[in-house]
Design a protein around this nucleic acid. Sequence first.
DNA 1: TTGAAATAAGATAACGCTGTCATACGCGAA
DNA 2: TTCGCGTATGACAGCGTTATCTTATTTCAA
Lengths: 334, 334
Amino acid sequence: MTRATIKDVSRVAGVSIKTVSRVLNKERYVSDDMRQKVEEAVARLNYHPSLAARTLAGKRSFQIGLIHDNPSPYYIFNMQAGVGQRCREANFRMIIQPCDVNSPGLIDDIGALIDQAQLDGIIMTPPVTDVGTALAELFRRKIPVVRVQPGTDLTATSAVYIDNVQAADDMTAYLISLGHRRIGLVTGHANYFASGQRLTGYRQALQRAGIGFDATLVFPGQFDFQSGAAAADALLALDDPPTAIFASSDEMAAGVLAAAHRMGIRVPDRLSVAGFDDTDLAQVVWPSLTTIRQPIRDLGYAAADLLLEFGETIERRQLPHELIVRGSTAPPQA
Amino acid sequence: MTRATIKDVSRVAGVSIKTVSRVLNKERYVSDDMRQKVEEAVARLNYHPSLAARTLAGKRSFQIGLIHDNPSPYYIFNMQAGVGQRCREANFRMIIQPCDVNSPGLIDDIGALIDQAQLDGIIMTPPVTDVGTALAELFRRKIPVVRVQPGTDLTATSAVYIDNVQAADDMTAYLISLGHRRIGLVTGHANYFASGQRLTGYRQALQRAGIGFDATLVFPGQFDFQSGAAAADALLALDDPPTAIFASSDEMAAGVLAAAHRMGIRVPDRLSVAGFDDTDLAQVVWPSLTTIRQPIRDLGYAAADLLLEFGETIERRQLPHELIVRGSTAPPQA
DNA sequence: TTGAAATAAGATAACGCTGTCATACGCGAA
DNA sequence: TTCGCGTATGACAGCGTTATCTTATTTCAA
């Protein structure tokens, strides 16, 4: 028993091939009578149209690509879950393309992907979102693009994002409200635009509270565990160390926690630690992390939604973040 | 400027379409002369063959599917990385299909995937590997299948795996060698065959050391953080609590750590904790976890390799695990 | 009542490849 | 020389859809 084709369906339903195609594509000008006959035949034969044939004959491929260069399993997993969910709803398929932002072959790889699979659209996550040459290549091919948290050319493509400035402001303000005055900040990788935005939010909250900005309390990180631990080592070795450390990612916050544990500094009693993202990680470290929930899955869903609903039309969508208070933060000890 | 087709290439190279096709597919009977002309034209036009057309015309689709129902981002991420890598080497594409083992639509979903995309092969990860109805559907379609760590019908398909019994034995023996006599075990989800195998390895090591098996020291978990913490609560509340706890996953080990922290029990001084998998998580908790490194990425790579190299021919490959000693284990306090 | 537009259906040509078959050439054995 | 075989190339049909064009039929305003 081989696969059923549209021809089989048309024979069983007693209609022309084109009519079956019309029903499948929900085109107009099909009588209810015909539609029903076709649907019955489709069900009876358990027919599924060949994507290859549809792609070849039509202008659409029913496939979108997700391009990423992100070492965080949590991020990618949730992004895929969101995009995948929306794709499934629309009967689209998602093609994952990991890539290397620093590779010279990046543009060729992306081009090859689009050519070979004839993608209907592309979703990009940071930091690929901000590679000018890659963007240019996509424009050249006139393919719809949605970027997640883009940092540059904000209006060049559709985009979904959260308000990073406000989120960092929220967290900083929360720490201040607990009574902290010296708050360390571990920034993210310089490649990521969000890193700068979070610094802005941090400064903004400090200023509103009348707390002077102290550059020695800001330490550059790379979003990963190691750099979080290193930052904590440096910050806690200061003459006047911070009573709270706000890390721009949960991984770095985990690093801060580990460093504190290593030094015998009790968290949150002697040091408050805050993260960013609310990945699963936030709840599997001890104490569990106060963090900003970034709705990664929803961002993915929204990105796919923009692609499928609007196509080339440029659209933007901001999603809400949320301050999640857990056990890693407390008022500073007297 | 639209995409280049094989026709364009043939015109530029001054040869027939079929010759271009031959070069592309590395068929025999092509002179070096021709081959070079074609390759030049391909490069000049930046030509990439249409997957849709190849799939439709040929018998292969150059796509394989990765079917999973696994809530662990780490696992999936690394599995994808391994499979993806091998696919890229062979110029294949990987289609990800998350699914729900308990959904009644599972079989239809898999069938639709294969029909629509005309996949050349399927890779499955636990626990989907052991769903009999799904396996039957794949056999019916005569599609090559490679399973990762299958638990049932071991010889029914190609498979890649590690020796779970030996791995659990290794860890248990290591804890015994540190001087532990009462070793708690948190098992994994009953759906996973590996859970039972690890229990076997644990018992095997105990027996070899002449330590009696104590069923009260074995607590059922679900592979996740919560169940790890719950297991630790229960085990540490025993009249004669264990001095070491071996959790069958890093996530559960993280749960054990958190529970210990909560109770003020120092790790590893008062309690040794061991995990399984060596996911990234193992290094971002404190103290970092002694664990069994399961080469997930390599398993993925090997799975794709079996599929691409052997096709329908059933082949099996066992990969080595490794005991990784970190800070969460130590000799028991006197 | 008429005819132009809207509706409903089918016949047939692409789409860009691969598979099959046909053809042509060189070379060693008969 | 001739035959046959391995090698090298091309012509052309088809893969399973959608797009385009054509042919009814119905509807509705003038």
